[in-house]
Design a protein around this nucleic acid. Structure first.
Lengths: 333, 333
DNA sequence: TTGTAGGCGTTATCAT
DNA sequence: ATGATAACGCCTACAA
């Protein structure tokens, strides 16, 4: 079944059918009707790949993520797909498993598919790969790790805002010994959260104590270990912020092991606001980093790069903000 | 950049280039070398969509899931993609959000992309949609909800095995009042788990008590509510099995609220073995339903349907089995 | 072993 | 308002 058969069936040319489907020029009501019913009768579905060949746009987008199983990503993928579909695009998700070789392979596939743009939501992209895309004029949007230039946009997270709110919240509750659990310090995002923490601790006039900042791995077990470490301190913190919710959940486990209750014995603030945060016990006070907004920004910037005359990318900031639930409480002295 | 330019650059015909790339016939070492270096120099990446047009196979697979954010799916998607990529396929994931209209739309898109096969890991597929695919000879593999026939395979889960093991495990630990939290009974998968539970309870000579079977929603809050209900019973169960791990996590919350400890005061068994089960506190005894195997079976059956002479599908059974961690213990009398 | 050329299903440019 | 037809990039008989 193809456009030609439809055309024959309706006694028109393929051009007419094409024009009708794509609303690319006026078609008289009578012929339109003829053609539509031919399409209906024959169960004709246009071949998008062929269309892409002819038109030069595949209506395909690549989405590169490092680990779909990390709760941060599914929501991102979901919303990115939603935006894409809404605008007639289809998305091919590439999971890199943090593996540069695999990443290279997947990027190559995306190029071979002639994707119209790619969202790089991972940091395993070396410059060579980026160049492969750039050379071919394929628009890219990065998450944190990119730069703004031709065919390249970048999404930035305003970590400071949410972390500042968190610290002020704790401060107002009377906490002065505040611990922090970072992510792997090899990641830029970990570093940024950590510096934000230190910055606002100082802003509140709290003296920074090295031992109160400990390192995790963005996973539950890392949070558990890091919190255990903090609990072994001679002077325990009375509140702890973590770099992501998964580690906060792990921290909670460590606290339970020590027979401590949240928020009575210790206040705890997460980061990300993954869906588990709300249904956690206790519901986690955390910093919202909206994946919906990240996904929307990513799509929209690609869409702009693809369709606008201006090929110059832009920088987009995503706000973060504190959401107070039940894992934080006034310090009892 | 296209095959023609490569051909010119290497002083050969496009046919030779094509044959070399696709290893579709012997090429003399000298020409091969010439062509490869031309490809290298020009940075040529074949256009897979054009290839699909010519060859009739898009090397594209559709994967339909109902909710990416449900922890069951990301792993499935991840492994399905892995299998696919390994065999030269690319996958388009379609998230239906449990919405039939959206499902219809996405299926249509997949057809327009001329996917070579589609894995339907959701139950929002009405017969019309299935027919649209069948009519076009597109192979399908279903998860639980399909039938075996031409171009259609089906994956079945052997719920009984794991649930039986769970019950025997509890029985051997001395438990006789065993509760069960089902999923929404509108879902076939919920019903099957429930009947398996009842069947093996009886097998152990335990008399079925209606009030010990309660209904949840496959989500954390549903597990919490269902467990609360069980805890309000005059005669509480001493052990509870849930239809999935998320509800087990919710159940755990309810137990904490009631000041009860797992496994000391109550044994708890989940289902699925999502990654959170292991890092749960306490690590959850649960029934493994391997998403890796589901993904592999789904891909392999599609691959077979696509490439084998026989177009007749098959039924594949996925085993389930108990994994004992720390949420179950001997009943203390 | 390699080349020629028609065809895959559309779109888009000229015509009419 | 519609039709003819040349691309689009590749594959694959058929020839040589």
């Amino acid at each position: 079944m193809n456009i030609k058969k439809v055309a024959e069936h309706a006694n028109v040319s393929t051009a007419t059918v094409s024009r009708l489907i794509n609303k690319t020029s006026y078609i008289s009501p009578e012929t339109a009707k003829k053609v539509w019913s031919a399409i209906e009768e024959l169960g004709y579905y246009p071949n998008i790949n062929a269309r892409g060949l002819a038109s030069g746009r595949s209506l395909l987008l690549g989405l590169i993520v490092s680990d779909l199983v990390n709760p941060f990503f599914p929501e991102l993928v979901k919303h990115f797909e939603e935006c894409a579909v809404e605008h007639g695009y289809e998305v091919i998700t590439a999971n890199t498993n943090y593996d540069p070789a695999r990443t290279a392979m997947r990027v190559r596939s995306l190029i071979e598919r002639r994707v119209d743009g790619v969202a790089v939501m991972t940091s395993e992209m070396n410059q060579t790969l980026v160049d492969e895309l750039s050379t071919r004029g394929i628009p890219i949007v990065f998450f944190e790790t990119g730069e703004v230039r031709e065919n390249s946009s970048n999404i930035r997270i305003d970590y400071e805002q949410g972390i500042r709110e968190g610290i002020i919240h704790l401060f107002n509750l009377g906490h002065r010994r505040i611990g922090f659990i970072t992510g792997p310090l090899s990641l830029k995002s970990s570093q940024m959260r950590k510096s934000a923490f230190l910055k606002f601790i100082r802003e509140q006039g709290i003296i920074e104590k090295k031992e109160l900042v400990t390192t995790g791995n963005y996973m539950i077990d890392g949070g558990r270990k890091a919190m255990s470490q903090l609990l072994e301190l001679k002077e325990r913190p009375t509140a702890v912020m973590t770099s992501n919710d998964m580690m906060a959940m792990g921290a909670l486990q460590a606290l339970r092991t020590y027979g401590l209750h949240v928020p009575e014995d210790m206040s705890l603030i997460g980061f990300d606001d993954i869906s588990l945060a709300e249904s956690n016990d206790p519901p986690l006070t955390t910093v919202i980093l909206s994946r919906v907004k990240v996904a929307e920004s990513a799509f929209e910037s690609l869409f702009a790069l693809i369709n606008n005359a201006s090929k110059i990318g832009k920088e987009m900031w995503i706000e973060t903000k504190l959401i107070i639930r039940e894992s934080t409480a006034r310090l009892i002295v």
